[in-house]
Simulated assay, not measured.
Amino acid sequence: MLNALGIVTTVIVGVMVGVEFSVAFIMNRILNALPEDSGQLGHAHGGRMLGALMPFWYVDSLVLSAIWAVAGWHHDGAGLVVVAAGLLILSVVMSVLLLVPINNRNKTWTAENRPADWKQQLHRWERYHYLRVAVIIGAFTLLVTALA
């Protein structure tokens, strides 16, 4: 049962990493290459779509990792799972404090109400997102290693 929990947790975190990696290195580049303000409108739409899903995904990943850490406390790899859960906590804190406020503003912007510094705000979000992706890749790597 513990092995199944580890596999399910690792797969869920791995898919989340894949989505966030794709946003950082594929979707953002596509959206930023669009003419004029089309990229911002695309970011806003993506923020509404993924903003509704990702909080649950991050929290579920963290909860599953914590359950795995507690259930497997006396098994090999428990320390790796604890550190991975710590990294997932960090990713949630980063999201709430750094990324969500920018995303919440961006997803309401239109051509009529967009602030003058909208490009700088989107670039700041992207920098924070790169850092968050690195954190969750670290967590995923630790979970995979704990399974091995």
Rank of each mutant, 00 (worst) to 15 (best):
M1H: 09
L5V: 15
L5G: 05
I7G: 01
V15R: 08
V15M: 13
V15I: 15
V17C: 10
F21H: 10
F25T: 00
I26L: 15
M27A: 15
P35I: 09
E36H: 14
D37G: 11
S38T: 13
Q40V: 12
L41I: 11
G42H: 06
G46K: 00
G47R: 03
G47V: 02
M49G: 06
M49Q: 11
M54G: 05
M54P: 03
W57N: 02
Y58C: 00
D60K: 00
D60C: 10
V63K: 09
I67W: 10
W68S: 04
G72L: 04
H75A: 14
D76C: 00
A78E: 11
L80H: 12
A84D: 01
I89F: 15
L90G: 12
S91H: 05
V93Q: 02
V100W: 05
P101V: 07
R105G: 05
R105Q: 15
N106G: 08
T108M: 10
W109R: 05
E112N: 13
R114W: 00
Q120M: 05
Q121E: 14
L122A: 09
E126R: 10
R127K: 14
H129I: 02
H129R: 12
H129W: 12
F140S: 10
V144E: 02
T145I: 14
T145G: 01
A148K: 06
